[in-house]
């Protein structure tokens, strides 16, 4: 059994994460997101709330980064998976230092191009997935949608 850290921002990122949870079965899952109320939706698993941050609020990004260092050092996950955005990118970068294997599933919202965080995550992640076939390239694979 492996320990999976599943991390996403709120709203659509979280909704998409919930649609892939069946692929985690047989493993221990720890969830991280930005809304307190989500704890009720994953009541059988451990849940951490972190600061909601984006390129819009730089100070929160710093707070978020340190929150994630603490969580990842504490949990030592084998696998880190994210559906975006900034919290997932940070978690993937940090978790490389604890030897985790990482998955980035770019949000289905990114139809015209991979998201900014997704483009950056490409350099740090082992499996980099888009949900639109026309956005694939050497590193970024398509293997279906969350729908």
């Amino acid at each position: 059994m492996k320990k999976i850290l599943a991390i996403s921002s709120s709203g659509g990122h979280w909704t998409q994460m919930q649609r892939i949870t069946s692929s985690f079965s047989g493993n221990e899952v720890v969830y991280v997101s930005t809304l307190k109320g989500y704890v009720k939706e994953v009541s059988t698993c451990k849940y951490y709330q972190v600061k909601d941050a984006s390129a819009w609020n730089k100070l929160n990004l710093i707070v978020l980064f340190f929150q994630l260092i603490k969580i990842i050092m504490n949990e030592r996950p084998d696998i880190v998976i994210s559906t975006g955005a900034a919290p997932g990118l940070f978690a993937i970068i940090i978790s490389r230092f604890v030897g985790a294997k990482t998955i980035w599933l770019d949000s289905i919202a990114n139809y015209e191009q991979i998201s900014l965080s997704g483009k950056l995550a490409k350099y740090f992640t082992h499996l980099h997935l888009t949900q639109w076939e026309h956005l694939t390239n050497q590193k970024t694979q398509f293997s279906g949608k969350v729908l």
Binding site: Q16, R19, I20, S22, S23, F24, S25, I81, I103, L105, L127, L129, Q131, Q141, S143, G144, K145, V146, L147
Partner: peptide, 11 residues
């Protein structure tokens, strides 16, 4: 759930 192909890739 997501498409089977995607779930299989991740698992």
């Amino acid at each position: 759930n997501a498409e089977k192909q995607l779930l299989k890739k991740i698992s």
